[in-house]
């Protein structure tokens, strides 16, 4: 058991370290002249070489790559990713400033998405009308097919400009949160719903469900007592993918609705080539991803007695 936990924690730490390294290579090693990335491409030729050299020295670009790497890594371990080029604020500070706003949006959207997904799966499994099942089963693939920037604009157009129910832009209060929440929840719900529809269907036709029918159980009680838990477990396995969808979705959503947050900050950081900030964000995202997968790996044995058994008898995962 302890071995299992240690293995999973080790794997998570490795992912974070490797993500840092990949980012370092991408942003600081691969570009022929990393200093150029720090300036606006339009003005790059107008900048005197002394200034460039000065900046390069400030960022440590004149040192050997290995030293640069070790230096940055050493600082990153204690949470120091340097200063943002644009704002001059420490990267960690800049991220922490906008993090709450994204957290509220993302967690709200996640809750909504999970509700939508379960709703779809339950209706698709419980209904005995083929046309309704076909309709409901088509929803998830529609949800992942409509680009977020389009659904955002559609939602804005209908509920803000036409009906005037909600404010269109900005980030004050709950009312301004509703539209971004819906926009973000729909594409996140899609893959979860697809998975759940499939696993609810499989579980409904499994052997133990037949046993339950034979016991004299009704359809409702079979769905609630037998199918629900077994069919929901697989949803945990795509927690990481869901997180990725939330991040990608919030980049677009925050841009469309002009909200502040990690997503919008990422876009600005990339646009302005704010390399330290980009590196910080990527490592933060990878670390969150690793953490989520770690939690899932540790929770699964709690929820599934079979996994628990293979762990206690000393099997590897």
């Amino acid at each position: 058991m302890l071995r299992y936990v240690a293995l999973k924690v080790g794997r998570a730490l490795f992912v974070v370290w490797a993500a840092f390294t990949v980012t370092f290579v991408l942003l600081f090693v691969l570009p022929a002249n990393p200093v150029d990335l720090l300036f606006d491409p339009a003005e790059i030729n107008a900048i005197p070489d002394e200034v460039k050299a000065q900046v390069a020295a400030n960022y440590g670009f004149n040192k050997p790559v290995v030293l640069q790497y070790l230096d940055r890594f050493g600082h990153a371990v204690i949470g120091d990713f340097g200063n943002s080029v644009q704002s001059g604020k420490p990267v960690t500070r800049a991220i922490l400033d906008v993090l709450p706003s994204t957290l509220v949006l993302a967690s709200g959207a996640l809750v909504l998405a999970v509700l939508i997904a379960f709703g779809i799966a339950l209706v698709a499994t419980a209904t005995r009308r083929p046309w309704l099942r076909n309709l409901v089963e088509a929803l998830p693939s529609g949800a992942v097919s409509v680009p977020v920037f389009l659904s955002g604009i559609l939602v804005l157009q209908i509920f803000s400009f036409r009906l005037g129910w909600f404010p269109s832009f900005g980030d004050d209060g709950v009312r301004s949160l509703i539209l971004p929440l819906i926009t973000l929840a729909v594409p996140v719900a899609g893959p979860i719903a697809q998975l759940l529809v499939r696993s609810f269907g499989t579980e409904l036709h499994s052997g133990y469900v037949t046993t339950s029918w034979a016991k004299g159980a009704t359809r409702g009680s079979i769905l609630v007592r037998d199918v629900f838990r077994n069919a929901s477990l697989p949803a945990l396995t795509i927690a990481g993918v869901t997180f990725g969808n939330l991040i990608a979705g919030s980049v677009i959503t925050e841009t469309v609705f002009a909200r502040q947050g990690i997503g919008r900050m990422t876009q600005t950081a990339i646009n302005t080539l704010d390399v330290p900030l980009v590196a910080g964000i990527v490592v933060l995202v990878a670390a969150s991803f690793a953490l989520i997968n770690l939690v899932v790996d540790l929770i699964c044995p709690v929820l599934d007695p079979r996994l628990r058994a293979t762990l206690t008898t000393g099997g590897t995962a």
């Binding site: 052997g207 133990y208 046993t211 016991k215 077994n230």
Partner: peptide, 22 residues
């Protein structure tokens, strides 16, 4: 549902798949 279990009991083929694992 009133007949099954009450009046007729059923023993399935594959014991390994026929009990709810959780």
């Amino acid at each position: 549902a009133l007949v099954r279990g009450n009046y007729v009991g059923f023993i399935p083929q594959d014991p390994n798949a026929s009990l709810n694992p959780v």
